[in-house]
Design a binder for these strands. Structure first.
Lengths: 218, 218
DNA sequence: GAACGACCTGAGGAAATCCTGAAGGCTCAA
DNA sequence: TTGAGCCTTCAGGATTTCCTCAGGTCGTTC
Protein backbone atom coordinates (compact mmCIF):
# COMPACT_ATOMS: atom_id res chain seq x y z
CA UNK A 1 0.00 0.00 0.00
CA UNK A 2 1.24 3.48 -0.92
CA UNK A 3 0.16 6.44 1.22
CA UNK A 4 1.04 10.01 0.20
CA UNK A 5 -1.03 13.13 -0.27
CA UNK A 6 0.89 14.28 -3.35
CA UNK A 7 -0.59 12.57 -6.42
CA UNK A 8 2.68 12.74 -8.34
CA UNK A 9 4.51 10.76 -5.65
CA UNK A 10 1.65 8.28 -5.31
CA UNK A 11 1.58 7.66 -9.04
CA UNK A 12 5.34 7.44 -9.35
CA UNK A 13 5.54 4.81 -6.63
CA UNK A 14 2.51 2.77 -7.55
CA UNK A 15 3.43 2.63 -11.23
CA UNK A 16 6.98 1.62 -10.43
CA UNK A 17 5.87 -1.04 -7.97
CA UNK A 18 3.22 -2.47 -10.27
CA UNK A 19 5.81 -2.72 -13.01
CA UNK A 20 7.96 -4.73 -10.62
CA UNK A 21 5.13 -7.17 -10.04
CA UNK A 22 3.63 -5.90 -6.81
CA UNK A 23 -0.10 -5.50 -6.28
CA UNK A 24 -0.67 -1.93 -5.14
CA UNK A 25 -3.47 -0.05 -3.42
CA UNK A 26 -3.17 3.63 -2.52
CA UNK A 27 -4.46 6.16 0.00
CA UNK A 28 -4.15 9.94 0.10
CA UNK A 29 -4.37 10.61 3.85
CA UNK A 30 -4.14 8.92 7.22
CA UNK A 31 -7.79 8.05 7.75
CA UNK A 32 -8.15 6.59 4.29
CA UNK A 33 -4.95 4.64 4.90
CA UNK A 34 -6.28 3.01 8.06
CA UNK A 35 -9.51 2.15 6.29
CA UNK A 36 -7.94 0.74 3.15
CA UNK A 37 -5.43 -1.21 5.19
CA UNK A 38 -8.23 -2.88 7.11
CA UNK A 39 -9.89 -3.95 3.89
CA UNK A 40 -6.86 -4.84 1.79
CA UNK A 41 -4.53 -6.28 4.43
CA UNK A 42 -1.28 -5.16 2.79
CA UNK A 43 2.02 -6.98 3.34
CA UNK A 44 3.81 -3.63 3.61
CA UNK A 45 2.94 0.07 3.68
CA UNK A 46 4.95 2.87 2.09
CA UNK A 47 3.89 5.79 4.23
CA UNK A 48 4.63 9.50 4.06
CA UNK A 49 5.30 10.88 7.54
CA UNK A 50 3.72 14.24 6.68
CA UNK A 51 0.04 13.75 5.98
CA UNK A 52 -2.71 16.37 6.00
CA UNK A 53 -4.71 14.74 8.79
CA UNK A 54 -2.85 12.22 10.93
CA UNK A 55 0.82 11.86 11.75
CA UNK A 56 2.48 9.01 9.91
CA UNK A 57 3.54 7.31 13.13
CA UNK A 58 -0.04 7.33 14.39
CA UNK A 59 -1.17 5.68 11.20
CA UNK A 60 1.53 3.06 11.55
CA UNK A 61 0.29 2.09 15.00
CA UNK A 62 -3.18 1.42 13.68
CA UNK A 63 -1.97 -0.75 10.82
CA UNK A 64 -0.85 -4.32 11.24
CA UNK A 65 1.91 -4.36 8.64
CA UNK A 66 5.54 -3.30 8.45
CA UNK A 67 6.04 0.27 7.28
CA UNK A 68 8.54 2.03 5.05
CA UNK A 69 8.38 5.70 6.02
CA UNK A 70 9.04 8.56 3.63
CA UNK A 71 10.59 11.51 5.48
CA UNK A 72 12.05 14.87 4.56
CA UNK A 73 15.82 14.84 4.31
CA UNK A 74 16.19 17.57 6.89
CA UNK A 75 14.30 15.64 9.55
CA UNK A 76 16.84 15.01 12.28
CA UNK A 77 17.40 11.37 12.87
CA UNK A 78 15.89 11.39 16.33
CA UNK A 79 12.50 11.81 14.68
CA UNK A 80 13.14 8.47 13.07
CA UNK A 81 13.59 6.91 16.50
CA UNK A 82 9.83 6.31 16.41
CA UNK A 83 10.41 3.35 14.14
CA UNK A 84 9.19 0.01 15.34
CA UNK A 85 11.44 -3.00 14.89
CA UNK A 86 11.04 -4.20 11.35
CA UNK A 87 10.17 -0.79 9.95
CA UNK A 88 12.53 1.31 7.87
CA UNK A 89 12.62 4.72 6.24
CA UNK A 90 13.76 6.55 3.10
CA UNK A 91 14.36 10.28 2.82
CA UNK A 92 12.71 12.48 0.21
CA UNK A 93 13.65 13.03 -2.49
CA UNK A 94 14.32 9.34 -3.08
CA UNK A 95 15.20 7.21 -6.07
CA UNK A 96 13.01 4.30 -7.11
CA UNK A 97 15.94 1.92 -6.76
CA UNK A 98 16.30 3.07 -3.17
CA UNK A 99 12.65 2.50 -2.34
CA UNK A 100 12.48 -0.90 -3.96
CA UNK A 101 15.66 -2.00 -2.24
CA UNK A 102 14.26 -1.04 1.15
CA UNK A 103 10.94 -2.68 0.42
CA UNK A 104 12.63 -5.93 -0.42
CA UNK A 105 14.76 -5.68 2.71
CA UNK A 106 11.73 -5.18 4.94
CA UNK A 107 9.80 -8.02 3.33
CA UNK A 108 12.82 -10.26 3.70
CA UNK A 109 13.03 -9.53 7.41
CA UNK A 110 9.28 -9.89 7.86
CA UNK A 111 8.74 -13.09 5.97
CA UNK A 112 11.70 -14.70 7.68
CA UNK A 113 14.30 -17.01 6.30
CA UNK A 114 12.34 -18.74 3.57
CA UNK A 115 12.52 -15.53 1.55
CA UNK A 116 13.96 -15.46 -1.93
CA UNK A 117 17.69 -15.00 -2.21
CA UNK A 118 19.12 -11.53 -2.34
CA UNK A 119 21.88 -12.51 -4.71
CA UNK A 120 21.97 -11.47 -8.35
CA UNK A 121 24.25 -13.16 -10.82
CA UNK A 122 25.12 -12.49 -14.46
CA UNK A 123 27.98 -14.48 -15.96
CA UNK A 124 30.86 -14.18 -13.44
CA UNK A 125 29.46 -10.96 -11.98
CA UNK A 126 27.72 -11.33 -8.62
CA UNK A 127 25.92 -8.89 -6.35
CA UNK A 128 24.65 -9.48 -2.81
CA UNK A 129 21.92 -6.99 -1.90
CA UNK A 130 22.03 -7.62 1.84
CA UNK A 131 25.77 -7.66 2.33
CA UNK A 132 26.10 -4.94 -0.27
CA UNK A 133 28.99 -6.78 -1.85
CA UNK A 134 29.94 -7.23 -5.49
CA UNK A 135 32.35 -9.67 -7.09
CA UNK A 136 33.68 -9.89 -10.60
CA UNK A 137 35.46 -13.09 -11.57
CA UNK A 138 35.62 -14.00 -7.88
CA UNK A 139 37.29 -10.75 -6.85
CA UNK A 140 35.49 -8.34 -4.52
CA UNK A 141 34.83 -4.85 -5.85
CA UNK A 142 34.22 -1.68 -3.85
CA UNK A 143 31.43 0.52 -5.18
CA UNK A 144 30.09 3.89 -4.10
CA UNK A 145 26.36 4.09 -3.28
CA UNK A 146 25.40 5.41 -6.71
CA UNK A 147 27.59 2.91 -8.49
CA UNK A 148 25.97 0.14 -6.49
CA UNK A 149 22.45 1.33 -7.27
CA UNK A 150 23.25 1.61 -10.95
CA UNK A 151 24.80 -1.84 -11.14
CA UNK A 152 21.87 -3.29 -9.23
CA UNK A 153 19.46 -1.72 -11.70
CA UNK A 154 21.43 -3.18 -14.59
CA UNK A 155 21.54 -6.64 -13.06
CA UNK A 156 17.88 -6.65 -12.08
CA UNK A 157 17.16 -5.89 -15.73
CA UNK A 158 19.85 -7.99 -17.33
CA UNK A 159 19.28 -8.50 -21.02
CA UNK A 160 16.88 -5.56 -21.23
CA UNK A 161 17.93 -2.40 -23.02
CA UNK A 162 17.75 0.63 -20.73
CA UNK A 163 17.67 4.17 -22.03
CA UNK A 164 19.56 6.89 -20.24
CA UNK A 165 16.25 8.50 -19.37
CA UNK A 166 15.02 5.26 -17.81
CA UNK A 167 18.21 4.93 -15.84
CA UNK A 168 17.98 8.50 -14.65
CA UNK A 169 14.39 7.92 -13.54
CA UNK A 170 15.19 4.82 -11.53
CA UNK A 171 18.63 5.33 -10.09
CA UNK A 172 18.68 9.08 -9.47
CA UNK A 173 16.41 11.01 -7.10
CA UNK A 174 13.17 12.08 -8.73
CA UNK A 175 14.09 15.76 -8.35
CA UNK A 176 17.48 15.45 -10.02
CA UNK A 177 17.88 18.45 -12.32
CA UNK A 178 20.97 17.55 -14.29
CA UNK A 179 21.20 15.89 -17.68
CA UNK A 180 21.99 12.36 -18.76
CA UNK A 181 25.70 13.10 -18.79
CA UNK A 182 26.04 11.68 -15.29
CA UNK A 183 24.82 8.32 -16.54
CA UNK A 184 27.69 8.24 -18.99
CA UNK A 185 30.10 9.08 -16.21
CA UNK A 186 28.80 6.37 -13.92
CA UNK A 187 28.70 3.76 -16.65
CA UNK A 188 32.32 4.63 -17.21
CA UNK A 189 33.08 4.15 -13.52
CA UNK A 190 31.31 0.80 -13.50
CA UNK A 191 33.16 -0.38 -16.56
CA UNK A 192 36.45 0.40 -14.93
CA UNK A 193 35.56 -1.34 -11.70
CA UNK A 194 33.53 -4.37 -12.71
CA UNK A 195 33.81 -4.74 -16.47
CA UNK A 196 37.54 -4.61 -17.12
CA UNK A 197 37.80 -8.32 -18.00
CA UNK A 198 36.34 -10.53 -20.69
CA UNK A 199 33.58 -11.16 -21.38
CA UNK A 200 32.40 -7.55 -21.42
CA UNK A 201 28.93 -7.32 -19.95
CA UNK A 202 27.97 -3.65 -20.29
CA UNK A 203 27.24 -2.77 -23.90
CA UNK A 204 26.43 0.59 -25.49
CA UNK A 205 23.60 0.75 -27.98
CA UNK A 206 24.32 3.98 -29.69
CA UNK A 207 21.53 6.53 -29.42
CA UNK A 208 19.37 3.89 -27.70
CA UNK A 209 20.85 3.13 -24.31
CA UNK A 210 22.82 0.45 -22.49
CA UNK A 211 22.33 -3.20 -21.79
CA UNK A 212 24.01 -5.62 -19.41
CA UNK A 213 24.29 -9.14 -20.80
CA UNK A 214 26.69 -11.80 -21.88
CA UNK A 215 27.80 -11.21 -25.46
CA UNK A 216 25.75 -13.20 -27.98
CA UNK A 217 27.54 -16.53 -28.38
CA UNK A 218 28.76 -17.67 -31.76
CA UNK B 1 5.18 -13.46 27.20
CA UNK B 2 5.29 -9.66 27.27
CA UNK B 3 3.13 -7.81 29.80
CA UNK B 4 2.90 -4.02 29.72
CA UNK B 5 -0.03 -1.63 29.62
CA UNK B 6 1.64 0.77 27.17
CA UNK B 7 1.04 -0.47 23.61
CA UNK B 8 4.22 1.13 22.32
CA UNK B 9 6.38 -0.80 24.76
CA UNK B 10 4.46 -4.01 24.11
CA UNK B 11 4.94 -3.64 20.36
CA UNK B 12 8.56 -2.67 20.65
CA UNK B 13 9.40 -5.71 22.74
CA UNK B 14 7.26 -8.25 20.94
CA UNK B 15 8.49 -7.20 17.49
CA UNK B 16 12.09 -7.24 18.62
CA UNK B 17 11.75 -10.65 20.25
CA UNK B 18 9.90 -12.16 17.31
CA UNK B 19 12.65 -10.90 15.03
CA UNK B 20 15.15 -12.72 17.22
CA UNK B 21 13.23 -15.96 16.80
CA UNK B 22 11.10 -16.08 19.96
CA UNK B 23 7.41 -16.94 19.95
CA UNK B 24 5.61 -14.13 21.72
CA UNK B 25 2.21 -13.66 23.34
CA UNK B 26 1.22 -10.42 25.05
CA UNK B 27 -1.03 -9.11 27.81
CA UNK B 28 -1.98 -5.56 28.78
CA UNK B 29 -2.70 -5.96 32.49
CA UNK B 30 -2.24 -8.30 35.42
CA UNK B 31 -5.43 -10.30 35.16
CA UNK B 32 -5.01 -10.87 31.46
CA UNK B 33 -1.42 -11.87 32.12
CA UNK B 34 -2.41 -14.60 34.59
CA UNK B 35 -5.03 -15.87 32.20
CA UNK B 36 -2.83 -15.89 29.11
CA UNK B 37 0.02 -17.49 31.05
CA UNK B 38 -2.25 -20.35 32.11
CA UNK B 39 -3.20 -20.98 28.49
CA UNK B 40 0.12 -20.36 26.74
CA UNK B 41 2.57 -21.70 29.34
CA UNK B 42 5.41 -19.29 28.54
CA UNK B 43 9.06 -20.13 29.20
CA UNK B 44 9.64 -16.62 30.49
CA UNK B 45 7.61 -13.49 31.23
CA UNK B 46 8.73 -9.91 30.64
CA UNK B 47 6.59 -8.08 33.17
CA UNK B 48 6.09 -4.42 33.92
CA UNK B 49 6.00 -3.84 37.66
CA UNK B 50 3.52 -0.98 37.31
CA UNK B 51 0.25 -2.33 35.96
CA UNK B 52 -3.19 -0.72 36.12
CA UNK B 53 -4.79 -3.50 38.15
CA UNK B 54 -2.39 -5.81 39.95
CA UNK B 55 1.11 -5.27 41.25
CA UNK B 56 3.74 -6.98 39.10
CA UNK B 57 5.02 -9.06 42.01
CA UNK B 58 1.54 -10.39 42.68
CA UNK B 59 1.26 -11.42 39.05
CA UNK B 60 4.62 -13.15 39.23
CA UNK B 61 3.47 -15.28 42.15
CA UNK B 62 0.54 -16.61 40.15
CA UNK B 63 2.63 -17.53 37.13
CA UNK B 64 4.80 -20.59 36.90
CA UNK B 65 7.65 -19.14 34.86
CA UNK B 66 10.76 -17.05 35.49
CA UNK B 67 10.16 -13.32 35.24
CA UNK B 68 12.13 -10.39 33.88
CA UNK B 69 10.69 -7.31 35.59
CA UNK B 70 10.57 -3.88 34.01
CA UNK B 71 10.91 -1.20 36.68
CA UNK B 72 11.28 2.55 36.78
CA UNK B 73 14.85 3.69 37.20
CA UNK B 74 14.08 5.39 40.51
CA UNK B 75 12.53 2.30 42.06
CA UNK B 76 14.13 1.79 45.44
CA UNK B 77 16.17 -1.32 45.70
CA UNK B 78 14.06 -2.95 48.40
CA UNK B 79 11.28 -3.30 45.85
CA UNK B 80 13.63 -5.32 43.74
CA UNK B 81 14.47 -7.45 46.74
CA UNK B 82 11.13 -9.16 46.09
CA UNK B 83 12.69 -11.09 43.23
CA UNK B 84 12.46 -14.84 43.44
CA UNK B 85 15.50 -16.92 42.61
CA UNK B 86 15.87 -17.09 38.85
CA UNK B 87 14.13 -13.79 38.23
CA UNK B 88 15.87 -10.63 37.07
CA UNK B 89 14.99 -7.04 36.24
CA UNK B 90 15.72 -4.21 33.81
CA UNK B 91 15.07 -0.53 34.45
CA UNK B 92 13.04 1.69 32.14
CA UNK B 93 13.96 3.18 29.80
CA UNK B 94 15.86 0.15 28.54
CA UNK B 95 17.66 -0.76 25.34
CA UNK B 96 16.65 -3.80 23.34
CA UNK B 97 20.15 -5.20 23.65
CA UNK B 98 19.81 -4.97 27.42
CA UNK B 99 16.49 -6.80 27.52
CA UNK B 100 17.56 -9.55 25.18
CA UNK B 101 20.77 -10.08 27.10
CA UNK B 102 18.86 -10.50 30.36
CA UNK B 103 16.31 -12.80 28.76
CA UNK B 104 19.03 -15.06 27.48
CA UNK B 105 20.71 -15.04 30.87
CA UNK B 106 17.49 -16.05 32.65
CA UNK B 107 16.73 -18.80 30.15
CA UNK B 108 20.27 -20.08 30.47
CA UNK B 109 19.94 -20.36 34.22
CA UNK B 110 16.49 -21.93 33.95
CA UNK B 111 17.21 -24.48 31.30
CA UNK B 112 20.44 -25.52 32.96
CA UNK B 113 23.52 -26.89 31.35
CA UNK B 114 22.14 -28.00 28.02
CA UNK B 115 21.74 -24.34 27.08
CA UNK B 116 23.35 -22.88 24.00
CA UNK B 117 26.77 -21.37 24.41
CA UNK B 118 27.08 -17.75 25.41
CA UNK B 119 30.23 -17.22 23.44
CA UNK B 120 30.31 -15.27 20.20
CA UNK B 121 33.25 -15.51 17.85
CA UNK B 122 34.20 -13.69 14.67
CA UNK B 123 37.68 -14.27 13.30
CA UNK B 124 40.04 -13.81 16.28
CA UNK B 125 37.53 -11.66 18.14
CA UNK B 126 35.69 -13.39 20.99
CA UNK B 127 32.98 -12.27 23.37
CA UNK B 128 31.62 -14.10 26.40
CA UNK B 129 28.12 -12.91 27.30
CA UNK B 130 28.07 -14.45 30.75
CA UNK B 131 31.53 -13.43 31.84
CA UNK B 132 31.16 -10.13 30.01
CA UNK B 133 34.65 -10.53 28.64
CA UNK B 134 36.12 -9.76 25.25
CA UNK B 135 39.33 -10.91 23.62
CA UNK B 136 41.00 -9.80 20.44
CA UNK B 137 43.82 -11.96 19.10
CA UNK B 138 43.91 -13.74 22.45
CA UNK B 139 44.34 -10.54 24.45
CA UNK B 140 41.61 -9.46 26.88
CA UNK B 141 39.99 -6.07 26.28
CA UNK B 142 38.19 -3.87 28.81
CA UNK B 143 34.98 -2.32 27.51
CA UNK B 144 32.52 0.09 29.06
CA UNK B 145 28.87 -1.03 29.26
CA UNK B 146 27.84 0.80 26.11
CA UNK B 147 30.89 -0.38 24.22
CA UNK B 148 30.08 -3.94 25.23
CA UNK B 149 26.45 -3.67 24.13
CA UNK B 150 27.48 -2.20 20.80
CA UNK B 151 30.08 -4.87 20.15
CA UNK B 152 27.61 -7.57 21.15
CA UNK B 153 25.07 -6.20 18.71
CA UNK B 154 27.68 -6.17 15.97
CA UNK B 155 28.76 -9.73 16.69
CA UNK B 156 25.23 -11.08 16.99
CA UNK B 157 24.66 -9.64 13.52
CA UNK B 158 28.03 -10.37 11.99
CA UNK B 159 28.01 -10.04 8.23
CA UNK B 160 24.81 -8.02 8.24
CA UNK B 161 24.91 -4.32 7.38
CA UNK B 162 23.55 -2.21 10.23
CA UNK B 163 22.46 1.39 9.74
CA UNK B 164 23.16 3.97 12.39
CA UNK B 165 19.42 4.24 13.02
CA UNK B 166 19.19 0.48 13.60
CA UNK B 167 22.12 0.60 15.97
CA UNK B 168 20.58 3.49 17.86
CA UNK B 169 17.30 1.59 18.15
CA UNK B 170 18.90 -1.54 19.55
CA UNK B 171 21.83 -0.43 21.64
CA UNK B 172 20.59 2.86 23.09
CA UNK B 173 17.60 3.34 25.37
CA UNK B 174 14.34 3.75 23.51
CA UNK B 175 13.92 7.30 24.80
CA UNK B 176 17.35 8.48 23.72
CA UNK B 177 16.90 11.90 22.15
CA UNK B 178 20.31 12.55 20.63
CA UNK B 179 21.41 12.00 17.08
CA UNK B 180 23.45 9.31 15.40
CA UNK B 181 26.72 11.11 16.07
CA UNK B 182 27.12 9.14 19.26
CA UNK B 183 27.23 5.94 17.24
CA UNK B 184 30.20 7.29 15.32
CA UNK B 185 31.98 8.05 18.57
CA UNK B 186 31.43 4.58 19.94
CA UNK B 187 32.45 2.89 16.74
CA UNK B 188 35.61 4.93 17.01
CA UNK B 189 36.16 3.72 20.59
CA UNK B 190 35.56 0.12 19.59
CA UNK B 191 37.97 0.38 16.72
CA UNK B 192 40.65 1.65 19.00
CA UNK B 193 40.08 -1.07 21.57
CA UNK B 194 39.27 -4.18 19.57
CA UNK B 195 40.01 -3.43 15.93
CA UNK B 196 43.53 -2.06 15.95
CA UNK B 197 45.05 -5.16 14.34
CA UNK B 198 44.63 -6.95 11.03
CA UNK B 199 42.31 -8.16 9.77
CA UNK B 200 40.04 -5.16 10.33
CA UNK B 201 36.57 -6.36 11.21
CA UNK B 202 34.51 -3.18 11.54
CA UNK B 203 33.89 -1.65 8.14
CA UNK B 204 32.21 1.63 7.23
CA UNK B 205 29.75 1.59 4.37
CA UNK B 206 29.51 5.25 3.60
CA UNK B 207 25.97 6.62 3.85
CA UNK B 208 24.70 3.10 4.53
CA UNK B 209 26.00 1.97 7.90
CA UNK B 210 28.55 -0.37 9.44
CA UNK B 211 29.21 -4.07 9.22
CA UNK B 212 31.36 -6.41 11.27
CA UNK B 213 32.88 -9.18 9.20
CA UNK B 214 36.08 -10.60 7.92
CA UNK B 215 37.15 -8.69 4.83
CA UNK B 216 35.64 -10.20 1.69
CA UNK B 217 37.99 -12.91 0.51
CA UNK B 218 39.19 -12.41 -2.99
C1' DG C 1 36.36 10.23 -46.24
C1' DA C 2 34.37 14.25 -44.20
C1' DA C 3 31.07 16.00 -41.16
C1' DC C 4 28.18 15.33 -37.51
C1' DG C 5 26.37 13.49 -33.41
C1' DA C 6 26.93 10.40 -29.66
C1' DC C 7 29.83 8.62 -26.40
C1' DC C 8 33.94 8.08 -23.23
C1' DT C 9 36.79 9.54 -19.65
C1' DG C 10 40.05 12.38 -16.98
C1' DA C 11 40.18 16.43 -14.14
C1' DG C 12 38.55 19.13 -10.52
C1' DG C 13 35.57 21.68 -7.38
C1' DA C 14 31.70 21.30 -4.27
C1' DA C 15 29.25 18.83 -1.07
C1' DA C 16 28.26 15.05 1.84
C1' DT C 17 29.92 11.95 5.09
C1' DC C 18 32.88 10.27 8.48
C1' DC C 19 36.61 10.22 12.08
C1' DT C 20 38.48 11.63 16.26
C1' DG C 21 40.23 14.63 19.84
C1' DA C 22 38.56 17.62 23.33
C1' DA C 23 35.55 19.16 26.73
C1' DG C 24 31.53 19.30 29.78
C1' DG C 25 28.29 16.98 32.63
C1' DC C 26 26.75 12.96 34.92
C1' DT C 27 26.86 9.02 38.23
C1' DC C 28 28.86 6.39 41.61
C1' DA C 29 32.07 5.13 45.00
C1' DA C 30 35.69 6.28 48.12
C1' DT D 1 33.57 16.51 48.66
C1' DT D 2 36.47 14.65 45.49
C1' DG D 3 37.86 11.85 41.73
C1' DA D 4 37.45 8.41 38.18
C1' DG D 5 35.06 6.48 34.63
C1' DC D 6 31.46 7.02 31.44
C1' DC D 7 28.26 9.29 28.17
C1' DT D 8 27.35 12.76 24.94
C1' DT D 9 28.12 16.81 22.12
C1' DC D 10 30.76 19.42 19.12
C1' DA D 11 33.86 20.98 15.62
C1' DG D 12 37.96 20.74 12.62
C1' DG D 13 40.03 17.97 9.39
C1' DA D 14 40.27 13.92 6.38
C1' DT D 15 38.08 11.23 3.14
C1' DT D 16 34.82 9.86 -0.21
C1' DT D 17 31.35 10.81 -3.39
C1' DC D 18 28.84 13.48 -6.68
C1' DC D 19 28.39 16.10 -10.61
C1' DT D 20 30.00 19.11 -14.37
C1' DC D 21 32.79 20.09 -18.07
C1' DA D 22 35.64 19.71 -21.99
C1' DG D 23 38.64 17.45 -25.17
C1' DG D 24 39.23 13.20 -27.46
C1' DT D 25 37.27 8.94 -29.63
C1' DC D 26 34.06 6.29 -32.11
C1' DG D 27 30.26 5.24 -35.19
C1' DT D 28 26.96 6.77 -38.73
C1' DT D 29 25.47 9.13 -42.53
C1' DC D 30 25.91 11.40 -46.70
Amino acid sequence: MVVDDEPSIRDLLSASLRFSGFEVVTAADGNEAVEVAKRAGPDLVVLDVMLPDLDGFEVAQRIDAPVLFLTARDATEDKIAGLRVGDDYVTKPFSLEEVQARIRAVLRRTRGEGAPTSRLKVADLELDEEAREVWRAGRPVRLSPTEFKLLHYFMANAGRVLSKAQILDHVWNYDFGGDAGVVESYVSYLRRKVDDVEPRLIHTLRSVGYVLREPPSG
